[in-house]
Design a protein around this nucleic acid. Structure first.
Lengths: 327, 327
DNA sequence: CTGAAAGCGCTTACAG
DNA sequence: CTGAAAGCGCTTACAG
């Protein structure tokens, strides 16, 4: 591997001059710059990230903390991972995966060893244990998901409140009178996953404001189980509108409805574009775009990295209404 | 951040002595070691990965090259990513994501910049363009998937041939007389994804050897489409045995069969444990375990990193037969 | 068994 | 505008 010294010799300049053209932080006369560039391509030189990291105290790596829950039905997860990696690449950063079972310790070590410049956390919950090591180290980090306390970190999340409001409003416009909210398993609500509780609470409030009764059902996320539950629930025929916030349920719903006599209830769901694409969800929907949240998270982190003293941000991303294609 | 110099001062020894206890490559008397250890925890010292990488010429990072195909139904993908990250962690390595649209260039740059020690490639196909930059640089890499030419790289893959043999044999034992092989979309076979062709070819050969007619069907990977296709195919009632090699098809099959009069054909499928878990597949199956292939890939890479001159390996992992639970 | 010195390949004040 | 020198924080021969 050629080094900066080889390039300097080849170009007949000092090493610091080569470094100047590499970093672009200093004026270098066009003629010299040209000679250096020629030497670089002649020798097929690439700056060593290792040496640069040591000298600049920056790795140009972003740690991505992701914990895969055993029993989760999360088709959008890999979309988030790629989208974040993609966005990071656009800013010159690479993604380093942090997947240790003991996430806080994993984070602590990554920070201490200095392998990353900043962190992005996926699926942050209300009282997330991964935030402590970040605050202790005063490290740059952005949460995807909304912790109750955002001191010391930036946060991006879908605007679940707005989504809930729009969905209930829409049910109302469609003439729905009696809503069933098909939500996540009870554990999800209990685990402090605020995306679940925030949506539920605002949906309840909005329905009440409109005088619409709304019954809450926590469904499974296992496709076969959810199918049974849907079948049981729907055959009662008590509801003329279904608000769905449960990926497995919306994926299975078309099949469950097939077994039932028409007319079917009005259905509207909150899910990701990824899920919609995969399962071709045939209902009205409010969709989150993982790419958008991912890009926003990376942007926030890069901004933080460039200005550590900026006020901490809490950014809410609006979901997009999509009407079912006629079929 | 404390440095090795601080630790040396605190412990009253030379910096090289601290380094010796850190690396463990040299004998250090117990008393000295203890003093050093005390100083380390006193100062809360962690070795700088940046400095170590520059000095040792190793980053302890593994690049994971993964390309997410837009229209793919691949629930096991995130399982692979985690499992690889987990296994890497067990060997002291971290995973760096390489997801650039121009994968060969992405690989070339990562190698040249020296940000990784080795590579793991996911979903390697027959004539994979990502192998060229690796061979050029004589870089350590293991493919998951079987390229036609494995010069210069190690490869791990499921033993699709064996899986096909066992599956057809099993159909025979179950009394199946006329098989439908429900496979991947035609594009998959055409793209050089050897997992598809290898399974298909051996299944055909095995069936022929047993005198069993086997009809081939390329199905969609979009759940709703596949459901229609299954319905159309099954209502003909021409086959008494279904061999499935298509994740979307096996996921939708239980629902498709529900609409049909019994008796149902005998069904056996090749898929991942991940898919089985997610969709609770109720049929006999031969299952691949992403965790196993992932661990094998990491093991191979670590071995390669420790001995660059070992002969290149092609490792086939056997899938596991799992009988449907009675229901 | 321990320690002083050089080196990994960059960047960045600082002189000139 | 350019170049010589120090420094980033480690590891690793090499003396002693």
């Amino acid at each position: 591997m050629a080094t900066i010294g080889d390039v300097a010799r080849e170009a007949g300049v000092a090493r610091s001059t080569v470094s100047a053209v590499l970093t672009g932080r200093k004026y270098v006369s066009p003629e010299i710059r040209e000679r250096v560039d020629a030497a670089i391509s002649e020798l097929n030189y690439t700056v060593s990230a290792r040496a640069r990291a040591l000298a600049t105290n920056r790795t140009m790596n972003i740690g991505l903390v992701v914990h895969f829950h055993e029993a989760e039905f999360a088709p959008a997860l890999s979309t988030y991972i790629t989208a974040i990696s993609e966005s990071a690449g656009n800013h010159g950063y690479r993604i380093m995966l942090l997947t240790g079972a003991d996430a806080p310790e994993d984070i602590r070590r990554a920070i201490a060893e200095g392998v990353i410049d900043g962190l992005i956390l996926l699926n942050v919950v209300e009282d997330d244990p991964r935030l402590a090591p970040i605050r202790e180290a005063r490290f740059a980090a952005v949460a995807i998901g909304m912790p109750s306390n955002t001191d010391g970190i930036d946060a991006v999340d879908l605007n679940f409140e707005e989504a809930a409001r729009r969905i209930v409003q829409r049910v109302h416009e469609q003439g729905g009178k009696h809503i069933a909210l098909l939500g996540w398993p009870q554990e999800v609500y209990d685990s402090g996953a605020t995306y679940a509780t925030r949506f539920r609470d605002v949906a309840l409030a909005s329905a009440q404001a409109l005088g619409l009764p709304l019954d809450l059902y926590s469904l499974s996320v296992t496709p076969s189980e959810v199918r049974e539950q849907l079948h049981a629930l729907l055959s009662q025929g008590n509801h003329d509108a279904l608000v769905v916030h449960n990926d497995a349920a919306i994926a299975m719903l078309p099949l469950a409805l097939r077994d039932l006599p028409t007319p079917h209830p009005y259905v509207i769901s909150l899910h990701s574009t990824e899920l919609a694409r995969l399962f071709q969800v045939p209902f009205d929907a409010v969709e989150s775009e993982p790419e958008l949240s991912s890009a926003a998270a990376v942007d926030l982190l890069v901004a933080r990295l460039n200005d550590g003293d900026a006020p901490f941000a809490r950014q809410l991303i609006d979901a997009v209404v999509r009407e079912a294609s006629a079929d």
